[in-house]
Amino acid sequence: MNSRLQAWLLALPATFFVVVCLGLPVLSTLATTFGEPAGPFVTYIQFFTSGFRRAVLLRTIEVAVITTAISLVVGFATAWVVARSPGRIKSILIIAAVFPLLTSVVVRSFAWMVILGKNGIINKALLALGILNEPLSMLYTEGSVIVAMVYLFVPLMILTLVGVLEGIPQDLTDAAASLGAPPSAAFRQVVLPMAVPGLIVGAVLVFTGSFTSYATPQLLGGDRQTMMGTFLYQRAMVTFDWVGASTIAAVMVVVTIATVLLMSRLARKLNPVVG
């Protein structure tokens, strides 16, 4: 048997599975949006002219951008310390980051409902200390969604960056220092450029993850902070407006793919090795 045929035979079941069970259904969802009798783009015109739907899209982008920015800063600083920690401590810290990452999103979101709720831990503590007279409403705000999202994605950012930062040899920063560069300059001119590819990968993962999330906005945002994921679910399962749901799905796919393409172009541009 020739090896090309053999290779294809082995790869065929998985390829077939992805094309038939993922490709076709998703394409069919996208196709639905263009099949309206009133015209091919009518659902998109409806989507972008409706103030509510635009607000949902903008809120989702805003939450995803803020979550990504905070996760980048927190993740980078923490990953730097983890990467430069001695072996034993490093393993413990990696375990501490992996543990939440592998724990159910529902569980991690629930924790923040317990912390931020009306009868939650923060409110009870502040009332007991006499700082507050009546409990604050922190749940179902954009802030509570962002806190829980940051909580969700910081471990992912840390683990993505630790590998990258470990790859930056200590010699390089030492060389910069011995040539008279203050730590801030060594950081800006040596460490940061080398970390850029990792930062971009992390940013893409966190942005697309938070942009398309469902459980966290559902639990911490509720109906007051509808985001694209919860909006899609509502349209599909509560109002049974499948064309509307498909339109939301299409917008999500476009934003996700655009982000991935844009960021990988940016990565190529900023790559210190090539550029």
């Binding site: 998703v26 398309t212 796919v253 793919i257």
Partner: peptide, 11 residues
């Protein structure tokens, strides 16, 4: 690459 929620709805 395909958002999970889009996959769920499409299925």
């Amino acid at each position: 690459l395909v958002p999970e929620i889009v996959l769920g709805f499409s299925l």
